[in-house]
């Protein structure tokens, strides 16, 4: 046997079943949260805001809000998925099973990414109810959606393995990812920032991701699409590298 497909499928299904069991928490909560953003920023405030780059403000924030959900949900799903077995001790079974580290990653990250990609599409559909939407490059949009779901699920997987407590599990999403996303142009174009701050903003990796995703909707972003794609792939490669290293060394998994 060179690839334990049954094993990957078993973990993947287990993780998906967990999401269905906690449907309320997995899908309904993020959708309601995002809908609130649309009501407040799109409906109430958006009407008084001028269009950004020729796009109505309500529509302008849609890609950023989807990204915000993708980031947080991917990280949450993947980190919790691997942290919980570590916490309860059921990880023993995964460690003693004939599954390679790559297969474990494919299964957990695949399940987490599937959940957040589906969620992203649900949020997109929700958004369409509130604001007029257009997607200029649908194929690129889907590709970015999947790539970013996978990348942040990998990132979440790393956090889940690293975390030694539930507090640490929440630390990075709450204290790093959410601020970077808010400051990364979810709600504005970084061109709206003063010159100095614009330069600072370019050090925020999230800017490139949101910009790229917005480009697939409206054909315009804060940075060139090529740079966005390169940044996304770079982050993906970095996360993949860290995960492979963790499994190779048994970091925080095996004594």
């Amino acid at each position: 046997m060179t690839f334990n497909g049954y094993g990957v499928w078993a973990i993947y299904r287990f993780e998906m079943a967990r999401a269905l069991r906690t449907l309320w928490q997995s899908v309904v909560t993020p959708v309601i949260t995002t809908a609130l953003y649309f009501v407040v920023f799109g409906g109430a405030i958006g009407g008084r805001m001028q269009a950004v780059d020729g796009v109505a403000y309500g529509a302008f924030i849609v890609p950023g809000l989807i990204m915000l959900s993708l980031f947080t949900q991917s990280i949450f799903n993947a980190s919790f998925g691997i942290y919980f077995p570590k916490f309860t001790g059921t990880i023993y079974e995964i460690l003693s099973a004939p599954v390679s580290s790559l297969e474990v990653v494919i299964a957990y990250v695949g399940a987490a990414a599937t959940k957040s990609a589906v969620l992203g599409l649900i949020i997109l559909a929700t958004a369409a109810l509130f604001v007029p939407l257009q997607v200029l490059h649908p194929v690129m949009m889907l590709a970015m959606l999947v790539l970013i779901s996978v990348t942040f699920s990998l990132f979440g997987f790393i956090i889940g393995i690293w975390a030694g407590s539930f507090e640490q599990l929440n630390f990075i999403p709450m204290l790093i990812v959410t601020p970077l996303t808010f400051l990364g142009g979810s709600f504005y174009s970084i061109d709206m920032l003063p010159e100095g701050w614009r330069t600072v903003a370019l050090f925020n990796p999230v800017v490139y991701l949101i910009s790229g995703f917005r480009w697939t909707f409206y054909g315009a972003g804060d940075v060139a699409i090529g740079i966005s794609v390169a940044a996304t792939l770079g982050f993906f490669a970095l996360c993949l590298g860290v995960v492979m290293w963790m499994f190779k060394t048994g970091y925080r998994l095996k004594a």
């Binding site: 334990n4 004939p98 599954v99």
Partner: peptide, 20 residues
């Protein structure tokens, strides 16, 4: 150490798949 929320049948079926 078991998954609290899983059913008996599901967890045993899971184990079989996990072991290829």
């Amino acid at each position: 150490t078991t998954d609290a929320f899983e059913t008996v049948l599901a967890t045993v079926t899971f184990s079989r798949g996990l072991f290829g």
